[in-house]
Amino acid sequence: MADFENLVDRIYEAAADADLWPQVMHDLGGAVDGAGGIILTRRSDAWLGWRYSAALAPGAEEFMRDGATRTQATARMLALNRAGFADAQEVFTEEEYLADPLIAEWGALAGLHHAAATAIPVPSGDFVVVQVNRRIGQQCFSRGDLARLDAFRPHLARAGLLAARWRLQKLRAAAEALAMIGLPAAVLDATGKVLAANALIEGLRSHLMWLPKDRIALVDPAANELLRRAIAEVDDPTASSVRSFPVKGAAGDPVVVHLIPATGTARDLFEGGFSVLAVTPLAAPSAPDAALIQGLFDLTAAEARVAGGVAEGLTLDEIAARHGVTVGTIRSQIKSVFAKTGAARQSQLAALLAAQTKIPLK
């Protein structure tokens, strides 16, 4: 069992490095003889990101994507309005608890039963949920157990505050970096709320409308419907929504809008489910370099070369011949590019890249 001060130190370290949360959640659970824990961020009805210890891993991803919105646990816990941890038995009867998706579709399959959880508000409307579980056959959490967990709660709250502030700084820096190479851009969360925007996109009044509650819309109704659909499906790499499309301005001047899902290392616990909205002229006079495109889509150098070949209109055989690799290698790389960009076909990928740049192939 980790000692109190050491675990507190690592909670603050995890605020800056989300990869530390699984071990922190394991040790937090261990502090009260639990199997482990999970930490989640939520806005409105959307779960934005989560990290969990190994004991909670079986079925966790499937539950968070498909079942988390159906559990009554969060709503009942919030109704307690308690600034501390609560045992699930305080808000459920045993029959209700066993039937709830939290246990029926996840916990029982992972060999877990009793849970203690707390909800912690953080700035910008998010809140953080921390839950620890015990294995089937163990007793529920006692008042002493909850008191021990409550001792960590202020530190979890401060870590959440720090992570949220660092998150906003990083998103603003990303938007400003795009402005430096002439791209109007904004960062949107999973619900379409604007988290950061550069001055260039704020000036596009002929193409964009700024709505209440930090929302953005396109003046072109057909394009705006495509944008709304793309935002709703931003976390689904197999979605059929178009993520690169032309937009007519109020004066008829066209631009191309790209919705770029954040993937891989671009995401962490407090940045789940966001995307970059970038705007380019229909015929861009200059192009961002390959490093920028790799960063936007989280591509490797090899994947960027394949994407560039697709943008040129080359076949996979031609791309393979150009770089002296097998077609099988190129097929594997193009699948990875599709997953990272949200494109489903080569033509869709070409459309996404064509208005921005032809990635240098050397």
Rank of each mutant, 00 (worst) to 15 (best):
169 Q>I: 15
229 R>W: 05
345 R>I: 03
22 P>C: 07
21 W>D: 14
12 Y>R: 06
359 I>K: 02
337 V>E: 10
261 P>R: 08
44 S>H: 13
149 L>N: 01
299 L>A: 03
157 A>V: 00
236 D>N: 14
279 V>L: 13
40 L>F: 04
201 I>S: 08
161 L>W: 01
37 G>W: 10
187 V>C: 08
297 F>K: 00
288 P>G: 12
292 L>K: 09
132 V>C: 04
284 A>L: 05
234 V>S: 07
328 G>N: 09
169 Q>S: 08
32 V>A: 04
333 Q>L: 15
80 L>W: 04
347 S>A: 14
160 G>W: 00
78 L>V: 08
171 L>Q: 14
203 G>H: 01
108 A>D: 12
115 A>K: 11
331 R>D: 01
239 A>W: 04
218 L>D: 04
276 V>Q: 04
26 H>A: 09
102 L>P: 03
303 E>K: 01
196 A>Q: 02
200 L>M: 09
318 E>L: 03
181 I>F: 00
68 A>Q: 13
70 R>K: 15
337 V>R: 01
161 L>S: 08
251 A>C: 08
95 E>F: 02
28 L>V: 14
45 D>R: 11
180 M>Q: 14
69 T>G: 07
108 A>S: 10
243 R>M: 01
300 T>V: 04
148 R>I: 11
266 A>F: 02
63 F>Y: 15
335 K>G: 12
243 R>A: 00
63 F>H: 06
331 R>K: 14
163 A>L: 00
278 A>M: 15
258 H>R: 08
304 A>S: 14
118 T>H: 09
311 A>M: 04
329 T>M: 10
301 A>G: 05
169 Q>A: 12
201 I>W: 00
35 A>W: 03
216 I>C: 13
